[in-house]
Design a protein around this nucleic acid. Structure first.
Lengths: 238, 238
DNA sequence: TGTCGGACGAGAGCGGTGCTCTCTGTTTGG
DNA sequence: CCAAACAGAGAGCACCGCTCTCGTCCGACA
């Protein structure tokens, strides 16, 4: 265990990182209970048996603690999405799509407060720093990967054909940025398809988790699966 | 003006309602600036030149004030959606869909904090009471109306045909509940189409307003319009 | 190995929050 | 006309994020 950190770190620096990690873990437990807006530095400090002012040796502010939790959550969700995409590599694209979005939903249902932290309304006064952008793209990347893998042996629209619409110049430029962000060379059609389907899954999930469908849908998992299948086939997966 | 309220109300009751409305208006202004989680009773009281404890003569708690604001916002958004649906009655269904979803987006962009109040992560410890359910269905109803109007002269799926999926029993039962909630006799196919398309629009809007597409998309309005057009045509509108 | 500086935690305190309780003054309906 | 209902003020409670100060202790370096 003592070898896990680079030996370049002094004992003091290692201890510092260790305590920081403990604080982060305690904050994560708090978060799961009270949610992002309810997270209290003082409560986190109490859980560790220290006084709140001592926390500021490790995090400059509550926002910095939140940022660390956001990155952690993005990484956990990214793991889930990537693992699903990798595990289904030899299955049919539509199945892969349903599995991956289902895996994302499963994580979100299991960690609703983390989901709210990532995709809910921003905490007031808090602006996510750029550190959160890269881990945030991993789930999008995994979904693009699945759809892009399906191009060729499939009825996905061929280049330049999106049906009723033509993408504006600004949109195509935005897609260039996204392509380089996820480091995949998918066509505009694929990017648009993923964005369409992913925003729908995301909207449905937010409806479920934020209570918009309260008292309406009983079996959210079944409905989500049906919606994912329908949406996947809408964008040309099969 | 003195006749605007039913004469059955005493002067005192009328004054009470008036002050209540003023408080609500002040809270609405506060909300637009600091957002749902940042809304402070004391600040609202200060704006009216009264002390915070006096507010409790009009609202039992911060949550009750929030609930009143939620209902107000749902009604404003419902107005927007219904007005758009009514104004485009003689246009083509796809145009109507794009116009209505665009109107919803325009309202959301103009009132981002109200949008967050309605569709963002719930304020911790706050559970929306049933009073908010009915006004919340108005926008859904307007969208269902548009798609349902299109059945017949259109290529919407005919009864019993949804393509790749078959709806589960629970889902069909949920659709019955929704049908009676919006008081429209749309087919399962229409309900599913609206839910699919509306959750996508909602997901896209949440991405935009909650900062997920920051630095990616410049012209959100154009992209939203393109996405709405594509999605509308996916569900069979033209 | 001894020492000294920097990290660390505690504590007090500031201004803010939601909310409760008590007290006073006003209004109003019987 | 008067008792009762009501409105608002004020103090206070427990909590919040955050700052500043002050001992202490321990690890890095000579």
């Amino acid at each position: 265990m003592e070898q896990s950190s680079p030996s370049a770190l002094t004992a003091r620096a290692r201890a510092h990182l260790e305590v920081r990690a403990e604080i982060l873990a305690a904050a994560g437990r708090q978060l799961a209970v009270v949610g992002p807006a309810g997270l209290s530095l003082r409560a986190v400090a109490r859980e560790r048996g220290m006084v709140s002012s001592a926390l500021y040796r490790y995090f400059a502010s509550r926002d910095e603690l939140l940022t660390a939790l956001i990155i952690e959550a993005y990484d956990a969700l990214g793991d889930v999405a990537e693992a699903s995409a990798a595990a289904t590599r030899d299955r049919r694209p539509l199945e892969r799509w349903v599995a991956a979005t289902g895996a994302v939903r499963a994580w979100a249902v299991e960690h609703p407060q983390d989901y709210a932290l990532l995709y809910g309304s921003p905490v007031p006064g808090y602006a996510a720093p750029d550190d959160t952008v890269v881990p945030g793209t991993r789930v999008t990347r995994a979904l693009v990967q699945i759809v892009d893998d399906a191009v060729g042996d499939d009825r996905l629209p061929s280049d330049g054909d999106l049906g009723v619409i033509e993408l504006s110049r600004q949109t195509r430029r935005a897609f260039d940025v996204l392509r380089s962000a996820v480091d995949l060379d998918a066509s505009d059609e694929v990017v648009m398809a993923v964005l369409t389907a992913w925003t729908q899954m995301f909207g449905l999930l937010s409806f479920e988790l934020f209570g918009q469908t309260r008292g309406l849908i009983d079996d959210h998992q079944a409905f989500f699966r049906e919606a994912a299948t329908l949406m996947g086939s809408h964008i040309g997966l099969r």
